[in-house]
Design a protein around this nucleic acid. Structure first.
Ligand SMILES: [Mn+2]
Ligand SMILES: [Mn+2]
Ligand SMILES: [Zn+2]
Ligand SMILES: [Zn+2]
Lengths: 141, 141
DNA sequence: TTAAAAATTTAGACTATGTCTAATGTTAGA
DNA sequence: TCTAACATTAGACATAGTCTAAATTTTTAA
C-alpha cells in the first residue's frame, strides 16, 4: 500500500527500512485487528519468510517508542498492537479480549490542580463490555 | 480497619471469609499503591504467614470477577490491583509504570450509533505521562 | 574501492507472570 | 456428626516477553 509513507516515517525516526521492520509496519497498516506480537510474527513469516521472534519483538518495541505504533495492554492477555493512523478510542471485550476501534471524540482533561507536578501526555478513553460476537451468548444465560 | 465491611462484601458475593482472602482484601484497602500480585503475596505472608502463591492469584481473580477489586493492565509490566472504593481515574507513568489515583469526573459516553450491538459496561479514562517523581529527571536531559 | 563502524538480525537460553492439577484441609448446613 | 461444597497448597506447567553473543547487513569514511 503506502510503501513510501512507511519508509518516510522510518527515516523520520532514524530507523533503517529493513525488510523485517517494514513487514511489521505494513502488516499493522493493512490490518485493523490489533494483533498480538505472536500473531504478527506468524503472519510476517508466512509471506517474507525470515524474521526471528526476537526481531519482531525488538521492532515492535522500537516502533512503539518512536510513536508509530500503539501498544494496548489487556488484562490477562498478550499485548495488542495498532498502527497509529487516525485517532480513535478502543473497545475491549470483557469476554474474548478483542480490541475494536471506536470513532474518536474529544476527552475532557483533568483539572490542572489535581494533576499537581505530573506531566500529562495523553488521555486515553477505553470502553469495556461485550463485543458484537459475545453480547448475545452472554445475555442468554 | 473495616473488618465488618469486608466480611459483608464477601457474603454479598458468596465468598467465605477465609484468612487468606481477608488478608488480600484488607491489604488492598489499606494501601492505595496499586500493588502487583507478587507484592500482595509477599506483604500478606509477612504478617499472617500462610498463603500460597496460587491462593493469592486465585483470590485476586475471584475478587476482580466479583467486582470488589479492579485490575489495571500496564503495558510491559505486571498487572496492578486496586480495591474498588470511591470512583476515580488512573494516571500511569510512562517511565516507572506506577499507577496513581486521580479524582473522578464524568466521562462522555460514545454515540449509541457507533456502539452498534456491543454492550457497554464502563468507560475508563486513563491518563498517561510522567509522575511527580519522574517528571523532573526526564525533562532535564 | 575498501576497511572500519554502526545498526540490525538471529537462535535459543532465560525471566517473569500467571495457570493448572491433584491432594489435602475447612466450613456450613442437614 | 456427616457430608458436600468450598478453599488452600506445592509445585509442575504455560505463555509472553527479554537478553546475550555471534553473525549479517548497511553506512561512513578513508
Ligand atoms: Mn485501534
Ligand atoms: Mn486506583
Ligand atoms: Zn467478545
Ligand atoms: Zn514515574
Amino acid at each position: 500500500m503506502d510503501a513510501k509513507a512507511i519508509k518516510r516515517s522510518f527515516d523520520g525516526s532514524g530507523f533503517r527500512c529493513t525488510p523485517q521492520r517494514y513487514a511489521v509496519m505494513a502488516f499493522l497498516m493493512e490490518h485493523n485487528s490489533h494483533p498480538t506480537a505472536a500473531e504478527i510474527f506468524k503472519a510476517v513469516n508466512r509471506v517474507d519468510p525470515h524474521s526471528s521472534r526476537a526481531t519482531t519483538y525488538n521492532n515492535l518495541r522500537d516502533l512503539v517508542q518512536a510513536g508509530l505504533v500503539r501498544e494496548v495492554a489487556v488484562e490477562g492477555r498478550a499485548a495488542r498492537f495498532d498502527a497509529k493512523g487516525m485517532r480513535h478510542h478502543h473497545f475491549i471485550c470483557d469476554r474474548c479480549g478483542n480490541v475494536e476501534d471506536l470513532e474518536w471524540y474529544d476527552v475532557p482533561r483533568p483539572a490542572t490542580r489535581s494533576l499537581g507536578k505530573r506531566m500529562l501526555r495523553e488521555c486515553e478513553l477505553i470502553f469495556r463490555g461485550l463485543c458484537t460476537k459475545c453480547a448475545p451468548r452472554r445475555t442468554s444465560r
